[in-house]
Design a protein around this nucleic acid. Structure first.
Lengths: 337, 337
DNA sequence: TTTAAATATGAAAACGTTTTCACAAAAATT
DNA sequence: AATTTTTGTGAAAACGTTTTCATATTTAAA
């Protein structure tokens, strides 16, 4: 466990010169530079991160907040963010809030204690007023999730449009009884999708039926549960818009089990364009989200904000969504015709 | 950005006493303690992590190495590890090696630079000789992946047994032409499964057919590709053992597309017991891996080793695997009978 | 009472860097 | 040849903690 002092001693030089070599500063003669590098190799010396962080007042670490990493959308986001961060020389710390405001707030202390240089929030469980004060300690960037009151850079997707095109597509297939099945009361992502959903309905003179609304569906099991509930309704829907491909897959598998034909008896549209949409039979119509691009942008921005130290400003970067039509909404005969 | 010095000044006490309050040391009078806590709240003071790490020679951060986080097996592992680490007061840094030895080696420097207190390797891309020297700088624990030459604690699953029971099950269904389809030449996990696979074969006087062996299948697309290849063989297999549920699902979906009946024309067994196995039609027979327990144990151990500083010792902790029989290997009629 | 032990506090050193400042030598400009 | 500029180097301060040591006071034991 050698220190810079050991290298200095071995070379007969000062800590300063060794430090200059490490950091590629100018004004070090070629022979001393070589001497130092040699000594560093010999000792297996490598600078101590904590000391560096303390002195430089930065850690080169970013925290990424997600609710759960096993949600495929978020694991994709984590993967892309990690790669983008590494490209910028940053390490990524993963914070799983598990939808708990307390956990989220607790993890925010990473910023306060200066363990990370910045935070990317891909999930927001607290009122913004609780998060805001942490801006005193470093930049916060919203990614995917968003919030009107937040005066910070935000990278998001056009969720209203996503809800709109998916619903419009269902309406165009002739459906009038369309269920809405998303997750998250708090999330503005879900809220926006509902706005788009409602917009498509009203544009076609259809009204939103609260009996068809399920707002607590996140995963496969939820999808299954929702299907069970749906079919007990007096006048069950013939189509369902969902907030994730997992929920869609859950509904689809349960529908199949009950002898429902998809899309003939029930049309289903997912969200996220995960691998599973192409595995299911029928393949699931979904909305593609450019996760990689979004993650990349979020990292670019937080890196920039860490450097510029000016991050109390709202800047919105929005990426488009795209409907991917597959078999779960269009009967095969029609599709081929 | 207040420091301990600010708190000291505000209270008229010394840094020492403030530090004692922060760290719950004895011998601080109750009134001073209250005074300090009050001042800390007033200033919004919170101790600086870097300074603490430097002084305490520990960071309370662990690194977890995985090839790719989007692989559901690994995202499950990451989730469980993160939770277990948090329970112990540790933060988790995610390192995606993307199957690259260089990236892996590069990430190992986190240990050398003391940015993390220990490393959990759930993936191993380098020869152990390359990793071994890093033991000078902190504990390394193998988790899931393993290596004979590694003199470190290892938490693993009985992969030989996993390969064995899955294959035996296929043989018991009457299959004699069984394909082997796993990923990773380097990985001992894959090698062990192949040993179990061969063992089951030879116990039933069947011989391993190299033409039926595919050793580069990791994901859904690979599964699809393998199916295509398989059916072009002169005497194609009637069953296939795979190294992951994604590969199995890929094969299954492609088989369906080609009009193959599963399991009648082709029986398929997966590995991991991911959610997808219950979504596919037919549902996929698979091998359950106790990921959570394994992750938990790995964290327990690394935390212990960080404290005890004695970690150059081989200790093997092995968890059992379990065959989950579903429809992709047993025809429905038979299953109900 | 005297002495020993327990309690309470602070000054200063230490953790391992980077940077500021000072200064000297060499090179370039007058 | 005198002066300025560029190049090369080191001592010491700074980053913000925790801990060691010293010391003073209070309490308990003799």
């Amino acid at each position: 466990m050698s220190t810079i002092e050991d290298v200095a001693k071995l070379t007969g030089l000062s800590r300063t010169t060794v430090s200059r070599v490490i950091n590629n500063h100018p004004y070090v003669s070629e022979d001393k530079r070589k001497l130092v590098i040699e000594a560093m190799n010999k000792l297996g010396y490598v600078p101590n991160s904590s000391a560096r962080s303390l002195r430089n007042q930065k850690t080169d670490v970013i925290a990424l907040f997600v609710p759960r990493i096993t949600n495929p959308f978020f694991s994709q986001l984590v993967e892309s963010t990690e790669i983008a961060a590494a490209d910028h020389g940053y390490q990524l710390i993963i914070c799983q809030t598990r939808y708990s405001p307390e956990k989220e707030l607790n993890y925010m202390n990473l910023l306060k204690t200066k363990q990370v240089d910045g935070v990317i929030l891909a999930s927001l469980q607290n009122d913004w007023e609780k998060i805001e004060p942490f801006l005193d300690y470093g930049p916060i960037v919203l990614c995917n999730e968003f919030e009107d009151r937040a005066n910070v850079p935000t990278v998001k997707l056009d969720q209203v449009y996503g809800g709109y095109i998916a619903t419009k597509h269902l309406i165009e297939q002739g459906h009038t009884k369309i269920a809405y099945c998303c997750g998250g009361y708090r999330s503005n992502v879900a809220k926006s999708r509902e706005i788009g959903f409602r917009q498509a309905l009203s544009e076609h003179k259809l009204s939103f039926d609260e009996r068809y609304a399920f707002r607590d569906a996140f995963n496969i099991a939820d999808g299954k549960r929702v299907f069970q509930k749906m079919i007990t309704l007096p006048d069950p829907p013939t189509a369902v818009f969902t907030g994730s491909d997992e929920v869609a897959a859950g509904i689809l598998s349960e529908a199949r089990k009950h002898g429902y034909r998809v899309p003939e008896d029930l049309a289903i549209v997912g969200f996220d364009n995960q691998a599973i949409t192409e595995l299911m039979d029928p393949m699931i119509t979904t909305v593609h989200q450019p996760v990689k691009e979004m993650a990349q942008k979020a990292v670019d921005i937080i890196v920039e904000k860490i450097q510029s130290r000016k991050y109390r400003k709202k800047e919105i970067y929005e990426f488009p969504l795209q409907l991917i039509v597959r078999e779960s909404t269009v009967s095969k005969k029609l599709a081929k015709a």
